[in-house]
Design a protein around this nucleic acid. Structure first.
Lengths: 248, 248
DNA sequence: CGCAGAATTGATACATCTCAAGCTGGGTGG
DNA sequence: CCACCCAGCTTGAGATGTATCAATTCTGCG
């Protein structure tokens, strides 16, 4: 576990890679200092479960590095992913004692955890945290609604293209590039996880990946590395408005 | 427009039917007084569009009475409902200039609107508003995630049963009763709106309604009035955990 | 009464699921 | 170092649930 060292390290918030995007983004130096007192790092290996739905949860956290998923499971085993958590994303709900979803690390994962009680107290005392959390929650709600359109109305091919576009965009933003023209990235999800994200079976995911490859929309190197010769062409396959809605 | 009169009426917040549930729920008397200064009522007839996606939106609002929907539409006309707004629900996003979704009144609708600029200023000044809005947004996010499970993994029959259960529960809570045993309510949505909610076609909605009626899970009086002889039996059809998750 | 919108019902098409059989590549133990 | 193994993935064939297209039937209302 390469990140194990982080677990004990009292990492300085000033150097934190997600400092400017996480729930603490708006905090002043003194507020950060107080957060430092209630925070601790935890690491998880790819595949590990972070919390089970229904479990008591006495912390909230920010994803520092790696990717986690939120999933719901029905009695008969049908599964639907309902959240994809990337670095800087927030986990947990202030004021709630039990987890509502399964949280799983899909890659090696490092989280910056805050003990819930003191965090909740800080939320009341320091509006900067509550303000930022509201903003992040509203963004998540927008993403969830986009996702609902995908689940309810898009075809399998459109779903796959949409997911690839989302991952490509996020990868580009991480590399501080614009998502356009020719690009390439690694899929952080297995076919089955993609299926759970998209409301499909893994076989359908596989078939549509092959179809997009056959139609030269994407190239594949191994199972995980995706090459996109023309990002606009991929976007055309998503079914979304071409003039990508940029709403402030 | 029967409600036009309300539009000018400077209604007293103290008498407001949604006083204890809306975004203003936590406000003190002096805070309410300031809200009163920036608020105004607007009424819409059933079927009217409140705002179009992409339109400039210079207010945020609470639904006072009636029902509104949030929908997204794809270029080729496919539509997905992404929000169902009931009395006390909040419309609009502080800090965003343009509407992200179409908002439509499905019944006659009265909204309590706040001019956006002063509302945003109040949000900063009075934490009670921001706190309540965060709480409401987190609830909406949970609802959206439940909805994602429905869209991605449930069968048509389960979708219909789930929607009926949701409406039954909400109707019961409005009448201050528990949702159990025998109950009855009016559908606030047309078959087409139900279809847009559920990611189905209206024909499939109609067929599954007929099937649930045939199987004595529900009774129908006219198209809109639904009778449920045994709420538990309806819940069994939703596919959800029987021990309905009650997460604080 | 008769019309228009809403809903139901039927017949058929089709996308996706299901079940099943191989394939692939990376790791492991002999 | 090779053979094997296994999880992850691909591909195929057939089943099935929902969409589509089309024809009625309701229902409320002018």
């Amino acid at each position: 576990m390469a990140h194990q060292d982080l677990q004990l390290l009292s990492h300085d918030c000033g150097d934190c890679p997600i400092r400017h995007r996480a729930v603490c983004a708006r905090c002043e130096a003194d507020e950060l200092a107080r957060l430092e007192q209630i925070k601790y790092y935890r690491s998880y290996q790819a595949g590990q479960t972070v919390v089970w739905s229904g479990d008591r949860m006495d912390f909230v956290a920010s994803v520092v590095s790696g990717i986690a998923t939120l999933t719901q499971t029905m009695e008969d085993g049908r599964r639907q992913m309902v959240g994809l958590l990337l670095p800087s994303d927030f986990v947990g709900r202030p004021g709630r004692a039990q987890a509502a979803y399964d949280v799983t690390a899909t890659t090696d994962l490092v989280m910056c955890c805050f003990r819930k009680k003191p965090f909740e107290e800080m939320m009341v005392a320091t509006p900067h945290i509550a303000q930022r959390l509201l903003e992040m929650t509203l963004d998540e709600l927008d993403a969830a609604r986009e996702w609902m359109l995908l689940l309810g109305r898009k075809t399998a091919r459109e779903k796959i293209a949409s997911l690839l576009a989302i991952i490509a965009r996020r990868d580009a933003s991480l590399k501080l590039r614009a998502a356009k023209g020719k690009l390439a990235f690694d899929l952080p999800l297995t076919r089955e996880e993609m299926a759970d994200y998209l409301g499909l079976t893994l076989e359908t995911v596989s078939r549509q990946m092959s179809a997009l490859k056959r139609d030269m929309v994407i190239g594949l190197e191994g199972k995980r590395h995706v090459m996109v010769p023309d990002f606009d062409k991929l976007l055309e396959e998503t079914g979304d408005d071409s003039d990508g809605g940029f709403l402030v």
